[in-house]
């Protein structure tokens, strides 16, 4: 049962991701990307990472992608000519990507898995991935990095504002 769900979700995520890349109109790309994010958050759920799943939908799909859509709306609609001046890249990309895919899948499925060691026990599932265990970590052990991320966000906001202002 779990496997079937995973397969459905996996195929969906791959499909939506491919759609982001091949879709000619940016708006559709963005919509597909939102779909991709939702599918990914469902995959997180199968991994018992409920909090992250929620965060994924809220922040990515909710905030970041809305920002993307805003920007896309501001732009005139364009239809792009994929390769243009760099036609030589067309012939290189496909084989290189295939080699890369092969290597990645090989390394991920053979190499690192061995070091991952034991299969998970289903004993301490209750707390795992829940907001309690994550909160404990975030506000105790990772308090300083947590505060620093807020600083990063602040810097990003100021940077964005400055970029727009300095033009005018």
């Amino acid at each position: 049962m779990g496997l079937i769900i995973f397969l459905i979700l996996g195929i969906l995520s791959v499909f939506t991701a491919i759609a982001v890349v091949v879709e000619k109109r940016p708006v559709y790309s963005a919509l597909y990307f939102i779909a991709n994010l939702v599918v990914l958050s469902l995959i997180y759920l199968t991994l018992h990472s409920e909090f992250l799943a929620v965060v994924q939908v809220l922040i990515y799909a909710g905030a970041v992608m809305v920002l993307f859509l805003f920007v896309i709306m501001m732009m005139p609609p364009v239809v792009e000519n994929r390769f243009g001046k760099m036609s030589f890249q067309k012939f290189l990309i496909m084989p290189l990507l295939l080699i890369f895919l092969f290597e990645l899948v090989y390394v991920l499925s053979c190499g690192l898995y061995a070091s991952a060691g034991k299969s998970p026990s289903s004993l301490s599932f209750e707390n795992f991935g829940g907001i309690v265990s994550l909160g404990q970590l975030l506000f105790k052990r990772y308090l300083v990095p947590f505060e620093i991320t807020s600083l990063i966000l602040l810097v990003a906001i100021i940077g964005a504002v400055y970029l727009r202002r300095s033009e005018q």
């Binding site: 909090f51 992250l52 991320t149 966000l153 990003a156 940077g159």
Partner: peptide
């Protein structure tokens, strides 16, 4: 998961800029 949390936050900042 904490790392993912951080990476999402940083990604958000990155997208803004």
């Amino acid at each position: 998961q904490v790392y993912v949390f951080f990476s999402i936050t940083v990604a958000a900042a990155e997208v803004i800029v």
